[in-house]
Design a protein around this nucleic acid. Structure first.
Lengths: 174, 174
DNA sequence: TATTGTTATACTCTATAACTATA
DNA sequence: TATAGTTATAGAGTATAACAATA
């Protein structure tokens, strides 16, 4: 913990909602551990990164095709990054890309049969890992609460102006 | 959502606790968005990655020195990765490394005055970002619940045998 | 022999900027 | 002019394996 009451204002660490900081660090560490395990599973069973899995899952759940921009939303933070990942997935024949007839600037991305099959093959193990690490520790009530909280938080974050929180730059050490 | 009741068993996606999947995806996306914003802030105000911030924060809150192994725990998943990061932090004079007198295999890592100052300089903005994105959406009750849940989950994950969930390898597509 | 940490190396991923083409 | 996407490129980060030194 960084800002417990005891050491607040000692060593330059300001006194700032230690309870919230504790929650924040617990959240980040738990998700970090979960994500690491989940990545191991995806790599082992499907040779996929988590980002690639997210892209495939998004395409699998979308009714039809998605444009690159739609596909990127919330998963990848630069267009070139998505182009790179889409290139890999296309080379592995898990997705296809074709120009949109409506707007010829756009690229329509679709998941292939092989892509769907891979998602289907990987998902059980994926759920198994999350169950063992996350859901086994949660009561039904916890699950409801966590779901309500994180859905609200996620929607709030999505609605946020993307770069509102990058203030003036104060160059530090080097 | 990948496994809602409607499309379960359609397209190869098995029917597996859709409610849990929803909670899981909301959690992962929310934290991903939060982490991305937080990384922007740390980079802008302190020229730090999140991993580097974690390492400094851990050293700042530890009473005294930590060994490399202690420092790595939960933050970095390979020893060479920590050596790399420690090298950067040392070069920036934010930490020091020296051989342990007790066990001469070990390296003792300590945070410098500059390191403490940097943490102190970066933390307010960090808290500000998390407040805007996370805590503003949470009631006091939510905060209690989330804290209780994530602390329990984190401790459960920490106690887990690290590599229990990496079953047999089925090579997939490429 | 086991453990702590470093080094060498290869690889994955991301981001910025320049570019093309369409709206 | 603005938007969608790609390409080139550079940089950060990670992991594996081989290694040295100590327990």
């Amino acid at each position: 913990m960084v800002g417990t009451p005891a050491d607040a204002d000692a060593g330059g660490v300001p006194a700032l909602g230690p309870r919230q900081l504790g929650v924040y660090f617990a959240l980040m560490e738990a998700v970090s551990l979960l994500q690491h395990q989940v990545e191991q599973q995806l790599r082992a069973e499907g040779d996929l990164s988590y980002v690639q899995f997210q892209l495939l899952a998004r395409l699998a759940s979308a009714g039809g095709d998605l444009t690159m921009t739609q596909l990127a939303d919330g998963v990848v933070y630069s267009r070139s990054g998505l182009t790179y990942q889409a290139g890999l997935l296309e080379k592995a024949e898990l997705i296809t890309r074709r120009p949109s007839p409506d707007d010829e600037r756009s690229t329509l991305v679709a998941i292939t049969e092989a892509g769907l099959a891979l998602v289907g093959r990987v998902l059980p193990g994926h759920v198994e890992v999350t169950r063992g690490l996350l859901f086994d520790s949660l009561s039904d009530d916890d699950l409801d609460h966590l779901g309500a909280i994180m859905t609200r938080v996620r929607d709030h974050m999505r609605a946020q102006p993307p770069r509102s929180a990058v203030p003036r730059k104060r160059k530090p050490s080097g």
